[in-house]
Structure formats: C-alpha cells, structure tokens
Amino acid sequence: MNVEFLGTGGYHPDAHRHTTCVLLPDRGLCIDAGSAFFRAPERLAAHGVTELDLVLTHAHLDHVMGLTFPLAHIERGTLTAVRIHGRREKLDAVREHLFACDLFPVLPPIYSWHPLPEKAAGTLPVADGLLHFREQVHPGGSLGLRFETGGKRFVFCTDTAPAPETAAFAADADLFVHECNFPDGWEDLATRTGHSTLSPVLDLARHARAQRTLLVHVSPDAADPADPVGLGEAHDPPPGAAVAVDGLRVTL
C-alpha cells in the first residue's frame, strides 16, 4: 500500500502546505479533496490509474474545494470516473452549494455520488480493501477512517477533537494519521473549533500502539512551518512520530 500526502495543512493553503488530500494512487483511493487535489490526477496517471474512489471526511471548504479543479484532466481523458463517497447530507451540500451556478457552473460529468450507510459506524468495500468509518466530534460532524488491505492497516482521523475511542479504532495501525491543528497551549481554541493539540494526539498514538504516527491538518498560522506544533519539544513521543509534509510518500 502506497500512501501519498498531497496536502497536509488545514484551514487555508500557504507557501508550505496545501489543504487536506491523501492519495493511495495504486489503489485509486483518495481521502478528501482540499486545495491539494489538483495534484491527484498526475499522480494517478503515473500509476496508470484513470478512475478514483474519493472519500470525504466532511464537507468543510478546505476539504472539498479541490473538486472544482480537475476539468482539464477530464477533457484529456486522463481522469475518467470519480466516485465520491460520504454522508448523504455532505454530498448534497457539495452539489447544491459548491457547484451552484453562481459559484462554479460546471459539475464534472464523470462525478458520481455514493452516500454511506446512515449509521454511526460501518464498513465500505472499496479499492480492493475494506474502509471502516466512524463518526467523530467536530462542528457539523466528520468521519474517522481505517483502510485495511493486504494485512496492512492505515488509519486517518482529521478534523476532530482527541477521543479515547480513537485508540481502539486505530489499534495496531501500521500508519496512524491524526490531525494536530494546534500546539499545546491552544486548548481553548482547539475545543471551540473541534480540533486537536499535540499531547493528547501523541497519547492516542501510544495507546493505539501505532507503528508510525504522522500529524496533519496543521495550522497555516504556525510560527515555525518546519515544526508547527512543537513536536521537537515533546517528551517521549511515540515511535515514528513526525509532522507530515506535502509530497511525503509512505509504503506500507
């Protein structure tokens, strides 16, 4: 399983990071379509893949704006089908608002919309594997995801406050990816916006016994883009903990 981090920032893109988009190019599977989604078609083409299953964790703009980007690749035929999976109300919101005529008048004809089952947690067979999803704590809701294939386990949890049940969901993950929008000391803002600070995320990774932990959805307003959440100052970080950067590729 190859995991490529096309966008690792949150809220808005900056000179260092685009917003959330993670691609498994050899599987034709993508999580979220933030501003980094413009990078996905070329990465898929490099693997000879023209169809994509795209899973939306939620419909906030920094996670869906990229859906308006790939028209040129559609015209060239390098992208022939995009199956978009998510909560029904989120898919409806994207179609009604993002593709409203006054905002963006062209709904790509290769897009198809696939609502997930209406339950708090479930499993979707997709991309030659199983995608498990569960509700998370975030304004408007979001989904935590676990993709399993070939004996490997990849867990992706963004736009959420730290929750004890996440450790069980991510247990023994080969790769545990969790948002860390703020460093320690910003707990009040994190609580008000439904995001995470560093120490609770590292605690989750330890309890999950993750082989490797990567932090994403970091704030574009961080003083130090190289270490936006203060990981370098953390006491006893879990094995393989790092802040993900755009362009990072991981093989499991």
Rank of each mutant, 00 (worst) to 15 (best):
D26G: 10
E96P: 00
D14N: 15
V245D: 06
T191N: 10
L29W: 08
K90N: 13
A121M: 07
E118R: 13
Q136W: 01
V245A: 14
H47K: 14
R249K: 12
D174P: 13
S112T: 15
G247E: 10
E148I: 11
L6G: 04
C21Q: 09
R206M: 02
G194C: 07
T19R: 05
H97I: 04
L189H: 09
H16W: 15
T191F: 09
D227T: 08
C21W: 09
L202W: 01
D203G: 00
R146L: 00
G34S: 04
M1N: 03
R134F: 08
H138A: 07
H97E: 07
H195P: 00
V22L: 14
V218L: 04
P238H: 03
R88Y: 01
F169Q: 03
A121D: 12
A15V: 06
P164G: 05
R153M: 05
A208Y: 04
G28F: 12
A226F: 00
G77R: 01
D203W: 00
I74C: 10
R212T: 14
H217D: 14
G129I: 09
P220H: 06
F154S: 03
G150L: 06
D227K: 07
E96C: 01
R153Y: 05
F154Q: 01
D128K: 14
P115T: 06
A234E: 03
P183R: 08
A59R: 08
V64C: 07
A81P: 11
L116W: 11
A121S: 15
A127L: 06
A167S: 14
E89A: 08
R192W: 06
Y11C: 02
F156W: 15
C30Y: 01
F147D: 00
E42V: 00
E135K: 02
V243W: 04
E179K: 01
V155T: 15
Y111H: 10
R43M: 02
G9P: 02
E179I: 10
A241M: 07
L6M: 13
R146K: 11
H235P: 01
T57P: 04
P117L: 13
A190Q: 05
D128Y: 03
F38K: 05
D221H: 05
A168S: 14
T78F: 01
D172N: 14
R88W: 00
L124R: 06
H85M: 08
R134I: 06
E148F: 11
P108L: 11
A226L: 09
D92V: 11
A59T: 01
D53N: 13
P13V: 09
W113G: 08
F182G: 02
A223H: 13
A210H: 05
T158S: 15
F99W: 04
F156H: 15
